[in-house]
């Protein structure tokens, strides 16, 4: 038998000096937020397969803080939380909540940015959006904070087959396991942006014990 003592946590440091956001358990949020975020609930994707929604979120106190907090060298938090009137009303005002996996997406995008060598622009409604957003018909990694719709790279608008397929290939070459939406007009395709996502990744911060 193993010595239980060998499983004891080693004291460590996880407080990033420039990342002051508090982790919250979505199940402890007020009812209007729980209704909109549906923390930990099951949600079916377009194929009918059930997915489990994120439960742990970073709490963003203000737009000012979102404008200042770096998720990666070239990506600030605000770039991932731009939503329009289609988002559920409680989630359009501060404090706002984003799934903890958003940091993983930012790191991936940073690597993608390095590969393309220029600015990568995430569209409005194209970062995190809640399961209550009017665009969210089925489970989408956008509601996990692990998907981005990129409408422009440098001076190139991704609104045509050539541009979308070129940058889609770079994304897949650069980020193993990344999924990009194929070019096209039917549902499930994209013709005016590059959608890339990491899948339905759940991030549970180390300090969470519940």
């Amino acid at each position: 038998m193993s010595d239980p003592a060998s499983f004891a946590e080693t004291p460590g440091v996880n407080e990033a000096p420039n990342f002051p956001l508090r982790v919250v358990d979505g199940l402890t949020l007020p009812p209007e937020y729980r209704k909109a975020l549906r923390p930990g609930e099951e949600w079916k994707d377009a194929t009918g397969f059930p997915r489990q929604l994120p439960r742990y979120f970073y709490e963003i106190p203000s737009w000012d803080s979102a404008m200042k907090i770096e998720l990666a060298s070239h990506f600030l938090l605000w770039e991932f939380i731009q939503v329009d009137v289609r988002e559920a009303p409680p989630l359009r005002t501060f404090p706002r909540y984003v799934p903890c996996a958003i940091t993983l997406l930012a790191v991936c995008l940073e690597r993608f940015r390095d590969a393309v060598g220029t600015l990568v622009h995430i569209s409005a409604n194209g970062g995190y959006r809640s399961p209550s957003h009017r665009f969210s018909k089925n489970a989408t990694p956008h509601a996990w904070g692990t998907a981005a719709n990129i409408y422009r790279i440098g001076d190139t608008y991704l609104d045509n087959r050539g541009a979308i397929e070129r940058f889609s290939l770079i994304a897949r070459q650069t980020l193993p396991g990344i999924w990009t939406r194929p070019y096209g007009t039917p549902t499930g395709f994209a013709e005016d942006h590059l959608h890339l996502d990491l899948g339905y990744v759940l991030s549970v911060p180390r300090d969470v014990k519940s």
Binding site: D84, V85, R86, S123, A124, N125, D159, T185, E191, D192
Partner: peptide, 24 residues
């Protein structure tokens, strides 16, 4: 339902009333 300063995503993609075919 809206405020004058409510924000709307500017996207050039719309669906025709004919068979929901996208147009710009």
């Amino acid at each position: 339902d809206l405020l004058p300063h409510s924000r709307v995503h500017v996207r050039n993609r719309f669906l025709s009333v004919v068979e929901n075919i996208p147009f710009r």
